[in-house]
C-alpha cells in the first residue's frame, strides 16, 4: 500500500515539475492590458480604403493583400505583360 502511495506521489510530483518546463501560452491575438483591437480585415472608417475588397470579409481582404504583395514581384509583373 505504501509503495502504491509513494508511486502516486512521485507521479504527481513529476507532472508538477515537468509542467514548469513548458512554454507559456501566448496571449490571444489583439489582447493587451489596455484596450482590445479589431482585426484589420474589418476595414477602416476613412476615405482612403483601397478598392477591390469588402470590409469585414476576411477571405477577400487576404486575397486582395496577396495580389498587392505580388506587385512587389517584378518577375510576376513581366510575366503578366508577356
Amino acid at each position: 500500500m505504501n509503495r502504491i502511495t509513494a508511486s502516486a506521489l512521485a507521479a504527481v510530483a513529476a507532472v508538477g515539475l515537468l509542467s514548469a518546463c513548458g512554454k507559456a501560452p501566448e496571449a490571444p491575438a489583439g489582447t493587451t492590458a489596455g484596450k482590445a483591437d479589431k482585426p484589420a480585415y474589418q476595414g477602416a472608417a476613412d476615405a482612403y480604403m483601397a478598392q477591390g475588397w469588402k470590409a469585414g470579409d476576411k477571405a477577400s481582404w487576404e486575397q486582395h493583400l496577396r495580389d498587392r504583395m505580388q506587385g512587389q514581384n517584378e518577375y510576376a509583373r513581366t510575366a503578366v505583360k508577356q
Binding site: K35, D37, A40, G43, A45, A50, W53, R68
Partner: peptide
C-alpha cells in the same frame, strides 16, 4: 493601434492604418 480603425485618435497616436485600408506598409510599397 488599439483605437477604431481609421479614426483621428488612431492617427494621432499610431499613424495611418493601411492594413485596414487594404494596403501594405508605405515603406515597402
Amino acid at each position: 493601434g488599439p483605437e477604431p480603425h481609421g479614426s483621428e485618435a488612431e492617427f494621432e497616436k499610431y499613424g495611418r492604418n493601411r492594413l485596414a485600408e487594404g494596403k501594405l506598409p508605405s515603406c515597402a510599397e
